[in-house]
Amino acid sequence: MKKTTNILFAGFGGQGILFAGKFVAYKGLLEGKHISWLPSYGPEMRGGTANCSVIVSEDPIGSPIVSKPDVLVAMNLPSLDKYENEVVPGGKIFVDSTLIERKVTRTDVDVYYIPATGLASEKGINTLANMIITGKLLKEVEELSFDNIDAPLGKVVSARHQDLLEVNKTALQLGYDY
């Protein structure tokens, strides 16, 4: 297992990219790890492309910027086009295959295709493709795990929307089981 995992979540603004990153960050924090979370900000927040760097580490974190991700979550085509070649050899790429029709061309990385957006709309949880793909992430990235998901979810789902906890768990489970 690597001591430091550099994760890049990328997609459209509104897909819950920052939220998914925050969940993974909080999960790491509550497990006693060092973590950092850095969003793109500015016009991206208002409907363009959005991404966030999340680092989960056994050691104190230097730069919070993930330019060479171990793990890439691509939820739209521009994100895959932009970051595919930045993933470190032996890294992992998670692709929302509902929205991205092309295949990953790299052969030195592990690729997981999950029709997250399609699954979400099938199950009537349209806004939770982000958490479906994150469920898959927790399963396949050995430095992460599916344990202790309740506490971090409770932290990232705002106090006003605690009724959405269950549906977020359902989405994570869907991705995990896919």
């Binding site: 060092h34 973590i35 950092s36 979370w37 850095l38 900000y41 974190i61």
Partner: peptide, 10 residues
């Protein structure tokens, strides 16, 4: 700077 302002850490 913008990074320090926007990033989250414990």
């Amino acid at each position: 700077d913008g990074t320090m302002g926007q990033m989250m850490e414990p």
